[in-house]
Design a protein around this nucleic acid. Structure first.
Lengths: 141, 141
DNA sequence: GTGTGTGCAAACTATTTGCACGGTA
DNA sequence: TACCGTGCAAATAGTTTGCACACAC
């Protein structure tokens, strides 16, 4: 029950629970991967009149609260997803733009190597791999 | 001698060799990882008056010719590098913004797994991993 | 009632496009 | 000479900021 959690987290910091904040969080969790604009669209379906500015401000807030996280999936459109989804790696197709997810388990070795050899701690929730998906690969030929 | 190559590649497609194109390519190769703006700055040192528009158009052209490639390294700033550098993975520090590189060899297993299990072909030249570098990790505590 | 959150408009950054001139081939 | 490439200005997309009103507490 995300609504509960949101209220709690907000209250704990002396922040206010508003319809917009609930809607934005709900939209993010619901859409899975979404740009601010897509979230705006979704929210607008339920509550017309919510400003895109509010979407940006709310996303920033929710990210600060640790409820959502964002990833850069190319060109420049950041996409947001629930922070509970931490631990999924994005596969982005260059050709069709489709975004898929895989378990971060396949990264275990890479993480260890980078940590040992470089002291670099990979943030799995923020990883995106670009390439070509199965469908587009077939068409390619 | 990239200049030679550039001339050849351009001629082969009936395109023209211009000072701007040479300068942009040189800047990209020289800077290693650079945003369009940084490239513009660099080019401007040598030849003032080159328009940022030209930088964008030239980068697009050079990328089409396979001479340079770009990667998204966060927030939305695309960075360009020589296509000959194909096969390096970027490590981007969330904290200090530093960009490091590692050999793509560490990705061999991941690539194979994704290819086998998902049919997804990872474009190594386009990979960026986010996280925290050794230096920032020490300061963090 | 008080102060935070929102909407609106404008500013800003990054990038793209249209058009006329200049330079390469 | 012919046409590509460039510079300039304006358009566009994405995001941020300032300010006044409204609503959660």
């Amino acid at each position: 029950m995300p609504g509960q959690t949101l209220a709690d987290v907000l209250r704990a910091r002396g922040l206010r629970l508003t319809a917009q904040r609930q809607l934005v969080l709900e939209a993010v969790l619901d859409l899975g991967h979404a740009t601010p604009e897509q979230i705006h669209e979704k929210v607008t379906c339920t509550a017309a009149g919510v400003n895109i500015t509010t979407i940006y401000r709310t996303l920033e807030l929710l990210e600060g609260l640790g409820l959502v996280a964002h990833t850069h999936l190319g060109h420049g459109a950041p996409t947001y997803h629930g922070a509970g989804d931490r631990g999924h790696v994005h596969l982005v197709c260059h050709r069709c733009g489709k975004v898929d997810e895989v378990s971060p388990d396949i990264f275990t070795d890479v993480r260890r190597k980078l940590s040992d050899e470089r002291g670099f701690l990979v943030d799995i929730g923020h990883v995106a791999l670009f390439g070509m998906c199965a469908g587009c690969d077939e068409e390619e030929s």
